[in-house]
Simulated scan of single mutants.
Amino acid sequence: MSDRRSSSYALAYWALRALPHLLLLLALLPVWELAVSTGFITSILVPPPSEIIASIWELYVLDGTIYPHFLITLTETVAGFAIGAAVAITLAVCSALSETFKRYVSPYAIVLNVTPGIALTPVVIAWFGYGMGSKVALAAIISFFPIFVNALTGLLQVDRDSEEMFRSLGASDRQAFLKLRVPASLPLVFAGLKIGLTTALIGAVVAEFAQATAGVGVLMNRFSFQLDMGSSIATLLSMTLIGLLLFYAMEFLDDRVVFWRREGRRSVVSRARARRWAAKFGGHESPETEAASSK
């Protein structure tokens, strides 16, 4: 019951935070519509909200044109992000464990980062072809660096007092790495994953702009060439929707994994563990719960 109440409070909190932005948008839309209808803003450049809403209705409800393109771009982004994150975290772990490995890998990672992703697009397409492979590859390349840097920084930032305590208790290098350095690095790792996930979307869409037969980027190019700006902006909002879905999915995972950073989530996990402990040991509380209740 208390967990459900905490979730209700969280939803109410986010609803209250979103309310001012929603009210501002509702106040802006009539002004925008009036500015276009009176000719103050050229409709060819900026379509009225009514046209954008009609295009959204057509793309999502009447024709359903957006769904296959939406799914293709989402698949390219997630696949590229998964590959980039796997490579980045693996190299970050190896660099954290070996100074020699770090000295040889870091310069190449920096060179890859300072090279503009859009400049790599023709080369990536030449290597991987015009299909989904080139989009996944570019998404992986662009998402690699922020994940690598954040993961490596988190693994190298170790609290010396905690490390000395681990050593005094007889912890091995492996135990100190897995039980101390990895958990301590998770906040920075997830920060890098959030950035990498959004940059993976940029890489996939840029590759679609360059050469593709399907995807949200292709659909937006098509509408732009037809000067159908209402549908073009509706497609752009679909890209935003993909980014929001991916970002908040990673935010949800961050909230579940790195739960100790948030007081409310830490309390929920603590109560859940206390219930499991009580069920396992016949109603007796865990030592941590007893200590917390005695304070």
Rank of each mutant, 00 (worst) to 15 (best):
F223N: 05
L201G: 00
G217R: 01
A214P: 00
G215C: 08
L227I: 14
A214C: 01
I242Q: 03
L244V: 14
L241S: 12
A207G: 08
F223Y: 13
L227A: 13
E208N: 10
I233G: 06
M220P: 02
T213F: 02
S224D: 14
A214K: 02
A210R: 05
F225M: 13
T213A: 06
L236M: 14
F223G: 01
T235V: 15
S232D: 12
D228V: 06
L246V: 15
E208W: 09
L237K: 07
I202Q: 00
S232H: 15
S232K: 15
V205L: 09
F209M: 06
A210W: 07
L244M: 14
A234V: 03
L244Y: 13
I202N: 02
M239D: 02
I202M: 02
M229G: 08
G203C: 03
G230M: 07
V218T: 09
G230H: 04
Q211F: 10
M239S: 05
M229I: 13
L246H: 14
I202P: 00
M229C: 09
I202L: 06
G217N: 03
I233P: 05
S232W: 14
R222L: 09
D228N: 14
G215F: 08
R222V: 04
Q226G: 02
I242F: 04
F209L: 11
T213Q: 07
D228E: 12
G215P: 06
A212K: 05
M239C: 12
G230K: 06
L236D: 03
S231W: 08
R222K: 10
M229E: 10
I242W: 01
M220A: 11
L241W: 11
D228C: 06
L237D: 08
I202K: 00
L237T: 04
F223S: 10
T235C: 14
L236R: 08
L246N: 11
M220T: 08
F209P: 01
L227R: 14
G230W: 05
A214S: 07
V218G: 01
T240Y: 13
Q211I: 06
